[in-house]
């Protein structure tokens, strides 16, 4: 299973890296926009005043055998859920993965939607269906906030369960400021012509950034799951090897003890007869 997890991890990792190029370009484009002097205001970027309904999207695995992966994510999720219930009248749960579903139903949480078709390679179309639905509900004012809990990927040796607010997309507004403040290399200081206008480009880029962000969460979760499984299975294999060697030793000792005993008995018997 360690080998299977390793192979799946490689695939998931490749996909995550490929997706990185897209998000990177989006961030760069937002930076260019900010430098072009367009003020970055967009309905998806502003905090809502009303606090009627929030959605919490929880990304867990379909299968276990991956150490503390699901547990970590679910603990963070429950903490965030309690936080949200304090501020919002109603909190809907969207759960991805059988593990999360059974954990939460067992604890009597009401789950609005659940998805079990995501494995180690979520496709953009699949994720986009969920993202679009949520985006639409946010735009029409049906929900006021969307949080996601997933295992965030920092490096191969470090992933942490993390809870983030993705609608409103305050993160993007923050990158805006950073980008314009930092000293960009001269090549990206080009004066761009915007078609039709910086505002219109911004209008389009915010939903795109949201979709890309959601997709990245799914990819991070997939990579995190495979890494967790790989580590857990490696530990299990090593543990089993160790157990086998200690059991073999015990078995050999017992057998040798028995043989020695029998020889002593035979020798004792022969001595008694002579």
């Amino acid at each position: 299973m360690e080998l299977v997890a390793t192979a799946q991890f490689r695939r998931a990792m490749e996909r995550a890296v490929a997706a990185g190029a897209y998000s990177e370009r989006i961030v760069r484009l937002v930076g260019d926009l900010a430098r072009a002097g367009g003020d970055a205001s967009h309905p998806l970027l502003d905090e809502r005043e009303s606090s009627k309904k929030a959605v919490l999207l929880i990304l867990t695995a379909n299968r276990g055998m991956c150490g503390g992966y699901n547990g970590g994510v679910l603990r963070t999720a429950v903490a965030r859920l309690e936080e949200l219930t304090r501020t919002f009248e109603e909190v809907e749960l969207y759960v991805v993965g059988k593990r999360g579903f059974s954990y939460l139903t067992y604890r009597d949480y009401k789950i609005a939607r659940s998805f079990f078709d995501f494995e180690d390679k979520p496709t953009f179309a699949e994720v986009d269906a969920i993202a679009s639905e949520l985006l639409e509900r946010y735009q029409t004012g049906e929900i006021d906030r969307l949080d996601v809990v997933y295992s965030k990927f920092y490096s191969i040796s470090k992933q942490r369960p993390s809870a983030e607010t993705i609608l409103p997309l305050t993160e993007l507004a923050a990158t805006d400021g950073d980008e314009s403040a930092e000293d960009a290399p001269s090549e990206s200081r080009l004066q761009f012509e915007f078609l039709p206008s910086p505002r219109s480009v911004l209008e389009e880029i915010v939903p795109t950034a949201f979709r890309a962000k959601t997709f990245k969460c799914f990819l991070d979760a997939a990579v995190g799951e495979q890494i967790a499984r790989m580590v857990a299975m490696k530990a299990a294999t090593e543990n089993a090897d160790e157990m086998i060697s200690s059991l073999t030793t015990t078995y050999n000792r017992a057998r040798q003890g028995q043989i020695t005993n029998e020889i002593l008995e035979v020798v004792g018997g022969a001595n008694a007869l002579s």
């Binding site: 260019d32 004066q191 761009f192 012509e193 078609l195 039709p196 219109s200 480009v201």
Partner: peptide, 19 residues
């Protein structure tokens, strides 16, 4: 394909961002 029609880009085009 821009939002309102086709847009052609040749060598040495001015820096542009389009929807």
């Amino acid at each position: 394909p821009l939002y309102d029609g086709e847009y052609a880009i040749g060598v040495g085009h001015t820096p542009v961002v389009g929807r």
